[in-house]
Amino acid sequence: MNIFRLFGDLAHLASIFILLHKVQTSRSCRGISFKTQALYVAVFMTRYLDLFLGTWVSFYNTLMKLFFIGSSCYILYLIRFQFRTTYDPNLDTFRVEYLLVPSFILGLIFNYEFTLTEVMWSFSIFLEAVAIFPQLFILQRTGEAEAITTHYIAALGIYRGLYIPNWIYRYYSEGSVDPIAVVAGIVQTGLYADFFYVYFTKVLQGQRFELPA
């Protein structure tokens, strides 16, 4: 564990709490992509299969994995049931099969061992890299977003961004590299570039998040 990893994971935790806070205080999931959230459930379920196979890493690791699975399922419940009237499926129209199918194919090709858990792990890494697309698509379509929704997306981007110095640190301190995670992680972070540009130049200056026409 190094400081980049720790703060990355904390940013990930923060993103979930920001999202829950947004939905529960506004009693609305307006602007939130159900599809992105459903993809995160798929990501966590396929990546954390080892939880159910008795692999033990650490208490921290197990606790975080359970939290990510539990909270992502809870968010789906909130959107689908508790606040379903505030969810607009006509805005959330990104075709998830464009993300699921290529991620699965990449998982079959690029993996560290051709076993169910390793292929699923690779699939989850590729899927996570692109899972934000439906959410960014809503942002693109509406052209604006509530500040709190943008804080959620920013926290997710920071989480992924911090994993990059973590890998550099681990390369020098442990000599280990995980090429699949690194390549997918760099792509994933890159997807946030446009978003961060608007976030830093507008939202953090106190202006509304509005995409240029």
């Binding site: 990893r5 080892d50 690791n61 990510f68 560290y112 390793e118 994993y163 681990r170 995980d178």
Partner: peptide, 10 residues
Amino acid sequence: IREEKAKDEL
């Protein structure tokens, strides 16, 4: 096989 060390990442 994925390195044991990397398996602690989330």
